[in-house]
Design a protein around this nucleic acid. Sequence first.
DNA 1: CACGGGATCGTCT
DNA 2: GACGATCCCGTGT
Length: 203
Amino acid sequence: MSTRLPIDFYQSTDVLNISKALLGKVLVSNFAGQRCSGIIVETEAYRAPDDKACHAHLNRFTKRTSVMFKPGGHAYIYLCYGIHHLFNIVTAPEGVAHVVLIRAIEPLENVELMLKRRGKDQLRPQLTAGPGVMSKALGITKAHTGTDMTMPDSPIWIEDHGIRILPEQIIESPRVGIDYAEECALWDWRFRIRDNAYTSKAK
DNA sequence: CACGGGATCGTCT
DNA sequence: GACGATCCCGTGT
């Protein structure tokens, strides 16, 4: 049994709680009838307006960040370092720019397709452990930013397969690669499933 | 295994 | 014109 997450799931203004609730959920992409998926094992929270690491810090509104202000359930995807497409889930009601970066999945369905997209021939954690490579494995690019994942025909969405992650299974630590965010860089807003081989190795 | 650095380009100043 | 919410490969141990 699997169920696409309802729109209500995404409307909470507690983005830390949603970040933890997304662990164990299943991220699915289906482009041109090619479905593949993985279990979310690592997330990070970004929260406007107070979080200096958030692109919408102080509610900065630009063409790029405008997607972050959409209602919860949209996809925010942007290009990082000119190479990597990073996939985020917009949360909270319209006008509140809270997002969850999905940093890693444990491959579930159609591993063959993900291997092909990554140019690999063996299933190893580095296939999907890390936000850039995860998007590449799923075929997600910044062209998909703004996708409403609560629409029945969207090419990207999230399902509940009944996997339950207990609080004691969640490791909370500082976020990765945001040294410029000063005191916000110390916040434990990165969430990982303990002992899962498919979380990213970033320090 | 740790590290150092290059790739590569959209976004905002 | 500067700089990333990263990744991979090469080098040395």
